[in-house]
C-alpha cells in the first residue's frame, strides 16, 4: 500500500485516483472515531462525510494538509464532533438505573449494559480527554500513534488517559471497586 506521504503529495496535485483512495482508506476509521464519541450512527455518517468534503474545500483554497493526512482528518473530525456535542443537551448517566438481578463482573450481559452509559459519561470529560479515549479505545491506537496524532508527548497522553479513566471509573457501579 502506498504510504501516506506519497498519497498526500498526490492529492496536493488534485490527482482524482488519489482522492478516491483517501476516501476508501480513511472513511471507516473516521466514521468509527466520530460514532464512538457520539453514539449516533446517522449523525456520525453525516459528520464523516463532512470531514472529507472539508478536505476538498481545503484543496480548493490551496490549503492542503501539510505533513500528516490522517492527523489532519482526525483533527477535523475532532472539531466537528466537539461542535456537534456542544449543540446537544446531554445528561449524566445514572449507573444505578441499570438493573440486574445479581450484578456480577463476570456477567457479560451486565457489563455490556454498562457500555452505553459509560460512553455517554464520556461527555463529562474534557474534550481532550474524550479525544484520547476515542483514539485509544475506539480506534485501538497505540500510545505512540495517539501521541503522534495529537502532536503531544507519550507522557502527556499517558497522563490524559489516566485522568480520563479515573474520572470515568468514579462513575462506575460499586462492584468494580471491590476486590473480586
Amino acid at each position: 500500500m502506498e504510504d501516506e506521504l506519497s498519497l498526500l503529495e498526490r492529492i496536493k496535485r488534485h490527482d482524482q485516483q488519489a482522492l478516491a483512495e483517501v476516501h476508501d482508506r480513511y472513511f471507516n476509521q473516521i466514521y468509527h472515531y466520530i460514532n464512538y464519541r457520539l453514539g449516533d450512527s446517522d449523525a456520525s455518517a453525516d459528520l464523516a462525510g463532512e470531514v472529507f468534503l472539508a478536505l476538498i474545500n481545503a484543496l480548493k483554497r490551496n490549503k492542503p494538509p501539510k505533513t500528516s493526512l490522517s492527523g489532519w482528518l482526525y483533527a477535523v473530525a475532532r472539531n466537528l464532533t466537539a461542535d456537534h456535542i456542544k449543540q446537544k443537551v446531554t445528561t449524566v448517566p445514572l449507573f444505578d438505573d441499570i438493573v440486574a438481578d445479581s450484578p456480577s463482573l463476570t456477567d457479560h450481559v451486565y457489563m455490556a449494559q454498562l457500555a452505553p452509559a459509560l460512553k455517554q459519561a464520556l461527555l463529562e470529560l474534557t474534550e481532550e480527554q474524550q479525544h484520547v479515549i476515542a483514539l485509544r479505545f475506539g480506534q485501538g491506537l497505540s500510545l505512540a500513534d495517539t501521541a503522534k496524532l495529537m502532536d503531544k508527548s507519550v507522557g502527556a497522553v499517558k497522563a490524559l488517559q489516566h485522568r480520563a479513566l479515573a474520572s470515568l471509573a468514579r462513575l462506575m457501579p460499586k462492584e468494580v471497586h471491590q476486590d473480586g
Binding site: 472513511f27 471507516n28 466514521y31 468509527h32 460514532n35 464512538y36 450512527s41 456520525s44 455518517a45 464523516a48 462525510g49 472529507f52 463482573l105 457489563m111 454498562l114 457500555a115 459509560l118 460512553k119 464520556l122 479515549i133 479505545f137 475506539g138 485501538g140 489516566h162 479513566l165 479515573a166 470515568l168 471509573a169 468514579r170 462506575m172 468494580v176 471497586h177 476486590d179 473480586g180
Partner: peptide, 26 residues
C-alpha cells in the same frame, strides 16, 4: 481495578459499519 474495568467497557471491539448504500452516497 476500576480503571481497567472502565477500559474494558470502553473498548469497541466490534464497531458498527456505515451501511454500504449510505457510504456509497457519501
Amino acid at each position: 481495578r476500576p480503571l481497567l474495568y472502565a477500559a474494558m467497557v470502553l473498548a469497541d471491539p466490534d464497531p458498527t459499519l456505515v451501511p454500504s448504500e449510505r457510504k456509497e452516497i457519501l
